[in-house]
């Protein structure tokens, strides 16, 4: 890697990191480096200062004691391999296992992935379907941002200057949740992926949350499909109906990886499969 000359500082505390990031416009945080380093290699970005937050205490770990709390510095591999989390919220382990490859999962962090906001990142749809909160800390203190409000566009988030993601909180992880990712090769970015969370009461859907990537320039909550599921009997017909509604509700991008029409068809298939998988759990 031969980036332009840059400074590097290893932050000793969260406040120090935030202080530096807030004071220098050309400073960027680095944790696992799985998105930033490739960009530096390509000279697609040229920050003046890297603020290494990887060693910060208290920002890692997975806590399933009460609400599920996952530190920003937890790696995808930490999430994938956490036995209690897997028991409590299997969809998170499932999603983690579908990110890239072992090397990337060993370094890449959930906080870094969220802050980078690649439109095809795997966490946003999962966390949207789980109604998670993103906890951030910055010069003016801490706040929690609903996952649905966090991503504002491609590589754009609700983070203010100097703010860092500190963790995510999942208060409600239904057992019936699934993440279906369609990629051309193992470890590729998704073409289209769908996260579904489903609850049933007496054979009827009591709650359905769906989110997708690959069908817009950012992760999307599939509200119209969710609406079709409200109160209806859990059935293949209902899933097909929701899938059709989902497909109708989007205007997917058209590029060399996949046409708009193909993405729409994939969305319908994946919504159906995700709901089926969720209902089977």
């Amino acid at each position: 890697m031969f980036p332009p000359e840059l400074d590097y500082v290893r932050a000793r505390s969260l406040d120090e990191a935030i202080g530096v990031l807030a004071s220098r416009e050309d400073a960027v945080p680095i944790a696992g480096g799985q998105s930033l380093v490739p960009l530096l290699k390509l000279r697609a970005v040229s920050p003046g200062l890297l603020v290494d937050i990887r060693g910060l205490k208290g920002l890692g770990g997975v806590d399933v004691g009460g609400p599920i709390r996952i530190g920003a510095l937890a790696t995808h591999g930490d999430i994938e391999g956490h036995a209690e989390l897997r028991a409590r919220c299997p969809v998170m382990a499932e999603a983690a296992s579908k990110i890239a490859d072992v090397q990337v999962r060993s370094f890449g962090t959930v906080g870094g992935s969220l802050a980078h906001a690649d439109p095809l990142a795997d966490w946003p749809p999962v966390l949207m379907a789980l109604d998670a909160e993103v906890h951030v800390h910055g010069p003016s203190g801490s706040r929690a941002i609903p996952m649905g409000d966090f991503v504002r566009g491609p590589y754009t988030t609700a983070l203010e200057r100097g703010e860092l993601v500190t963790g995510i909180v999942v208060r409600d992880c239904p057992r019936g949740a699934a993440y279906l990712k369609y990629a051309y090769r193992h470890g590729d970015f998704a073409v289209v992926a769908v996260a579904a969370a489903l609850r049933a009461d007496g054979g009827h859907v009591s709650e359905a949350r769906l989110a997708a990537i690959g069908v817009a320039d950012r992760p999307l909550r599939l509200g119209q499909a969710e609406a079709r599921l409200a109160g209806v009997p859990v059935s293949e017909d209902a899933f097909a109906d929701a899938a059709e509604a989902a497909a109708r509700s989007v205007s997917p991008p058209d590029d060399h990886r996949a046409s708009s029409g193909y993405r729409r068809a994939l969305l319908a298939t994946l919504v159906k499969r995700a709901l089926r998988a969720a209902a089977g759990r």
């Binding site: 490739p38 051309y184 090769r185 193992h186 470890g187 590729d188 060399h256």
Partner: peptide, 28 residues
Amino acid sequence: LYEEAVYDGEGNLITANLALYGVPTFAE
């Protein structure tokens, strides 16, 4: 099944690195 060097109408090689070009791996 997987590989293609794709040029766009502007003459750009858009499958310009291993992230964008699908060499099959052991998993395939």
